[in-house]
Simulated scan of single mutants.
Amino acid sequence: MAASKGKSKKHSGWREFGEDNSIATEKATPDLPPEKQNIRVQSTRAGRKGKTVTVITGFQSKTETLQALLKKLKSQCGSGGTLKENEIEIQGDHKQKILDILKQLGYKAKISGG
């Protein structure tokens, strides 16, 4: 025992909340067809230092589907954008253009807010 005194042992015991539970805690996202999703399109400046962005919410799709949609919307609007927590943000005020594109793709979309 005296020889192992200087070495530190890693404690391995039962843990209720392990270090890597990413698979267990991952939300199951249903991948609904576009016509069964209720999408809201809204322009806002809140928390963006006065810059207007168009936020699209209400998606119930996988991340890969949303990434493809994001790419299409960015190219159609000619501006940048991002995907945050199943919400798409497009830089600038493009409510009507995005609404038209989403309806062409089969989504049930509405303009939300004023």
Results as ranks from 00 to 15, higher is better:
R40H: 14
K36C: 14
Y107W: 08
K62C: 09
N86A: 13
K110T: 11
I98H: 07
S79N: 05
K103C: 03
T52R: 08
I111G: 03
E87A: 13
L66S: 04
K110I: 02
K36F: 04
K10D: 13
E26C: 08
E16V: 09
N38T: 10
G92H: 01
N21F: 02
D100T: 12
L73C: 01
V41P: 00
K108Y: 05
S112A: 08
G6A: 07
G47Q: 11
G81N: 03
K74A: 12
T25C: 03
D31E: 14
L99D: 02
Q60I: 00
Q37V: 06
H94T: 05
D100Y: 07
S112Y: 09
Q96G: 15
K71P: 00
L83Y: 00
G113A: 10
A46K: 02
R40F: 15
G6T: 00
A68I: 01
E87D: 13
D93I: 01
D100L: 05
Q60F: 06
A28Q: 15
I111S: 11
L70Q: 01
A24S: 10
G78P: 00
E35N: 08
A3W: 06
H94N: 13
G114T: 13
S75N: 00
T82D: 14
R40P: 03
S4Y: 11
A109T: 08
P34F: 09
T63N: 05
T63G: 12
E16H: 12
G13I: 05
K27W: 08
I56S: 02
G13S: 05
G18W: 14
L69D: 02
Q60H: 03
K27P: 06
A3Q: 01
N86G: 06
I23N: 14
V41G: 07
P33M: 09
S112W: 06
F17H: 14
N86I: 02
L105Y: 13
Q91M: 06
K51A: 15
E16Q: 07
G47A: 04
L102K: 01
G106K: 03
K97G: 06
K62T: 15
G18A: 08
G92N: 14
D20W: 05
E26A: 13
H11F: 15
A68M: 03
T82F: 15
I111K: 08
E19K: 08
G81W: 06
P30R: 10
R48A: 02
E35S: 12
D31M: 11
V53M: 07
E26T: 11
L73K: 01
I111R: 04
G50S: 06
T25M: 05
E19L: 09
A68S: 05
T63F: 03
K62R: 11
I90Y: 03
G18I: 04
Q42N: 13
S22D: 12
P30A: 11
H94Q: 10
H11P: 02
I88N: 10
T63K: 09
Q60A: 14
T65S: 15
G47H: 04
V41C: 08
K9S: 13
L70A: 07
G50F: 06
A3C: 10
Q76V: 09
P34W: 01
G58R: 03
G106Q: 07
E26W: 04
K5I: 15
T25P: 02
K71A: 12
T52H: 03
K10S: 10
S43R: 00
I88M: 04
